[in-house]
Amino acid sequence: MDWRLIVHGPADGASNMAIDEALFQGVQAGGRPVLRLYRWNPSCLSLGRNQPALGALDPRTAAARGIDIVRRPTGGLAVYHDRELTYAALLPAGRFGRPRATYGMLHRAIAAGMRDLGVTADVAQATTQRPRALHTAALSSHPCFDTTAPGEVLVRGRKLVGSAQRCEGRTILQHGSILIESGQVVVAELLNGEARATAAIGLADVLGRVPDVDALQDAVVHGFTSECRITFERSDLEHHEQCRAAMLAERYRSDAWTWRR
């Protein structure tokens, strides 16, 4: 069965999360798996579903810098979205094994695609040990790219891709940022009020030039095709998906959701 391949241009954070969730619901209802590629405008700080924000983040500071804020449906920590290509994979659980195995598999696909661009990308070794949370606090106001975990995409030991999952029923949503230019220092500035070096790396740092977005998209798709042995049919949102996404975007714009904790 062909996966759907949906390629979108830049959109705001709430719209992006709403579209991911609308497609997630479609796959839950028995639709084909989807790979969506997209970008962000305006730039946006996304929070993990359960990441504490109240008292840790001042929306006025972000707004003064023209930075949007959205809370994702997926776990993990804060990511700054600006110069990047974002991927979202919506698929049945079990397609590539359990959620943790799926996490690594999708990253291996992206790493394979990066090699098409001449980037030596590796996937951090998974172990049979239980994945460790790298913060002693349960969930912290920290940047996603400050930590690495097994199964993540690394270049020169630094994190190129930050991803997060949501598993509901027998369906997985995994989305993540493939950094073109890192920019993740903004997360520390917004959360902690100070600039701090991060463990992130962007493709521009590696290549010495900003890669062409179309070439990057093609490389990601080729990585999925070759590594995951899947084929794609180019697609776009159907009318009912657009309507569903428009409704869901209201929730993602709401203070009740964004500032839930």
Partner: peptide
């Protein structure tokens, strides 16, 4: 019915 969620490393599960 979903009564809650659990978050582990990067993943939220119902």
């Amino acid at each position: 019915d979903t009564f809650g969620t659990v978050e582990a490393v990067k993943a939220v599960s119902d």
